[in-house]
C-alpha cells in the first residue's frame, strides 16, 4: 500500500527538468558538505572519505567538506617531493569527464549551485564576451599543471598555485569560515589574502551579473570537462533537419551556447533547459548514441 502510494505520488508530481536538476544539485551539495557543525568549531573533517575526490569543485579546507577537491588533489600530488604528476586525480577527473562531460558542472558541482543562487539576486545582467572563456584554459595549464610541478623550493615541493593565488572557492568556503572560527589565524592575514579577497569579490560580483561567471572564465575543472564534452558518454544530439531556427534554445541557454549549431560545445553544462524549451523537440540529452 505504502509502495503504491509512493509510486502514485511520483506519477502525480510532474517534476520539470529544471526542478529535477535542482534536487540533484542540492543533494550533491549536501553530500559534499555533510559536516556543517564543523563551521562552529573551525575544525576539518579528518576521516577516510577525504582521500577520495569530489567530481565537482569543493575546497577540502572547507570545514564541512567530506571529499577532496580534485584540482587541489592534483596540485597536492604534483607539488609533493616524490611525484610531478598525479595519475590518481588526473585519472579520476578524466574518467568522470569521459562519462559525463560538463554535466558534472550542471548537476553535482557545489560551487556551481552557489553561483546559480547568486545569479538569482536582482542585479543588472550582462552577456560575457566569448574571448574571456579561454582564460580558464590558460589558468589550467599554468597554475594547475605547470607551476606546482615546476616552481619548487629547495626540498623539491611545489605550492598549489591555483589554490594559493586564484581560487575564490577556497577563500569563500575555507578561508572566511576558518578565519571567523580562529582569531589566532587572523594575525597571519597579509598581501596574499588581500589579493584572494579581491579575486573573490570580483568573482562574486561577476556571478551576480553573469550566470556562472566562475565556470565560464576561471574554472580549470570545467575546462577539462569542457574539452571532454565532445566525446562524453552523456551527450547532446541535435536533429538539425527538423530545427525551425526559432532561437529559443540559444536565448534560454545560461552558458550562451547555440546547442543546435554546436551540441558538443565545451561551454555546455548539459542543464537541459534548451531541450525542455524546444518547441520541435530536436534536442536530446542521452547516454546512447542515436
Amino acid at each position: 500500500m505504502f509502495v503504491w502510494n509512493v509510486l502514485d505520488w511520483g506519477n502525480y508530481m510532474k517534476f520539470s527538468q529544471e526542478m529535477k536538476r535542482k534536487i540533484i544539485q542540492i543533494a550533491a551539495f549536501g553530500y559534499s558538505n555533510t559536516y556543517l557543525h564543523n563551521f562552529a568549531n573551525g575544525q576539518l573533517y579528518k576521516g577516510q572519505w577525504k582521500q577520495f575526490c569530489n567530481p565537482g569543485l569543493n575546497c577540502y579546507s572547507c570545514p564541512a567538506a567530506r571529499l577532496s577537491c580534485p584540482i587541489g588533489a592534483m596540485q597536492a600530488v604534483s607539488g609533493s617531493v616524490n611525484f610531478n604528476i598525479s595519475f590518481y586525480a588526473m585519472g579520476f577527473i578524466l574518467a568522470a569527464g569521459v562519462l559525463f562531460g560538463r554535466a558534472i558542472c550542471g548537476f553535482v558541482c557545489p560551487f556551481g549551485l552557489i553561483q546559480e543562487l547568486l545569479y538569482k539576486v536582482p542585479f543588472p545582467k550582462r552577456k560575457l564576451w566569448k574571448g574571456f572563456t579561454y582564460i580558464k584554459y590558460i589558468l589550467l595549464v599554468l597554475f594547475v599543471l605547470i607551476f606546482p610541478a615546476a616552481c619548487t623550493n629547495e626540498l623539491g615541493m611545489g605550492a598549489p598555485a591555483f589554490c594559493e593565488y586564484i581560487c575564490p572557492a577556497g577563500t569563500l568556503e575555507g578561508g572566511i569560515p576558518l578565519l571567523a572560527a580562529h582569531p589566532e589565524l587572523r594575525k597571519t592575514i597579509g598581501t596574499l589574502f588581500s589579493l584572494k579577497a579581491c579575486i573573490l569579490i570580483a568573482t562574486l560580483a561577476g556571478c551576480l551579473a553573469v550566470c556562472r561567471f566562475f565556470c565560464k572564465v576561471m574554472c580549470p575543472l570545467g575546462a577539462i570537462y569542457g574539452i571532454l564534452n565532445k566525446i562524453s558518454v552523456y551527450h547532446m544530439e541535435a536533429d538539425k533537419d527538423n530545427c525551425i531556427s526559432c532561437g529559443k534554445c540559444r536565448d534560454i541557454c545560461p552558458m550562451d551556447v547555440n546547442p543546435v549549431e554546436n551540441p558538443g560545445s565545451a561551454e555546455c553544462i548539459r542543464c537541459g533547459k534548451c531541450a525542455a524549451n524546444c518547441p520541435e523537440q530536436v534536442l536530446f540529452l542521452r547516454f546512447r548514441h542515436r
Binding site: L44, C59, Y60, P160, G170, T171, L178, L179, I189, K196
Partner: peptide, 8 residues
Amino acid sequence: VCLECIGL
C-alpha cells in the same frame, strides 16, 4: 588546514 589554499 591548507594555509596556501585559503590565502594565508
